[in-house]
């Protein structure tokens, strides 16, 4: 009985602690449901904390004032291509490094591993000159995703994972007469699902929030990612905090959804990110 009480108490405490920690996010949600003029109004009574009755109008207003749907599509396209196409490209390369004969493979791999430390920020300017100025890819999806398709870090992680798997299955397929391409797609890729999912979740998080590169590569309000869109909406007169908060909530939802579905892999991705063995 006593221990049960203790548990309930711990739960309540944790709930309170969690609420305090999440206060800024809850405040965002609350403000998105208030009439504009009340967002910045000083609090005088407790019941002002709850946005009652909720004002969904702010959300509708976002759609009325800017092309939110298109912005969402750009973000989804940008992130989606990187996650899906990039994953296959990186996994294929990792597989070749882990299992196949490559002329100069060890040296090549050392070079790839060394590329991990080059921060994207140091490449942003020349990439802009290459893709934006000379390549004419400003305000286009390829301009956004091209630099991110191949990732040395993912190649490294996935290769480690392949190396940790026993080769028996692939050898069995080989003896049965399968080509390396078939083995990669039918045998190896399904086996690597955990590490691929981990990389996919991390990449989704990273690029959904991406700010600098889209800021550089777009200069038209009708072609921008959600994060940029928020930046613009935030300064779009007349400034209406309710709408801004509604925009913020909608910009966050897709990540929350991905998190809800892939939570399991996310913990694993943390383990791989942390151990990097």
């Amino acid at each position: 009985m006593n221990s049960r009480l203790r548990q309930i108490a711990a739960c309540v405490l944790a709930l309170l602690g969690g609420l305090v920690f999440l206060f800024p996010l809850l405040w965002m949600l609350r403000s998105s449901l208030l009439p504009h003029d009340q967002v910045l109004r000083a609090l005088t009574a407790w019941r002002q904390l709850l946005p009652w009755p909720p004002r969904w109008e702010n959300y509708a207003e976002v759609f009325r004032r800017v092309a939110f749907a298109r912005t969402l599509l750009v973000s989804l396209g940008f992130t989606g291509v990187i996650v899906v196409v990039g994953m296959v490209i990186n996994a294929a390369c990792a597989y070749a490094f882990a299992r196949l004969r490559l002329p100069g493979g060890d040296l090549l791999f050392a070079v790839v591993a060394a590329l991990i430390i080059i921060p994207f920020e140091a490449l942003a300017l020349p990439l802009f000159i290459m893709l934006g100025v000379h390549g004419g890819l400003m305000n286009s999806l390829p301009g956004l995703f091209l630099p991110y398709l191949a990732k040395a870090f993912n190649i490294f992680l996935i290769r480690q994972y392949f190396l940790s798997l026993p080769a028996e299955l692939e050898e069995a397929a080989r003896v049965e007469g399968a080509s390396w391409f078939r083995i990669f797609f039918q045998v190896a890729l399904p086996l690597a699902k955990p590490v691929l999912a981990a990389c996919a979740v991390l990449d989704f998080m990273l690029h959904w929030s991406e700010y600098l590169w889209p800021l550089i590569m777009t200069n038209r309000p009708d072609f921008e990612t959600i994060q940029l869109g928020l930046g613009h909406f935030y300064t779009l007169p007349p400034i209406q905090w309710g709408g801004i908060m509604a925009y913020s909530v909608m910009a966050t939802l897709p990540m929350m959804l991905v998190f809800a579905f892939f939570q399991r892999y996310l913990v694993l991705s943390m383990a791989t990110a942390g151990l990097k063995q």
Binding site: C93, A96, P126, A150, F181, F184
Partner: peptide, 27 residues
């Protein structure tokens, strides 16, 4: 099949060359 290693790694290696090594040198 004999060149599978090269063919599977080539897309990523070319992309890394074009979008990491080249811009780094340019910088």
């Amino acid at each position: 099949d004999q060149r599978a290693g090269l063919l599977l790694s080539l897309p990523a290696l070319l992309l890394l060359l074009a979008f990491v090594i080249l811009p780094f040198t340019m910088a």
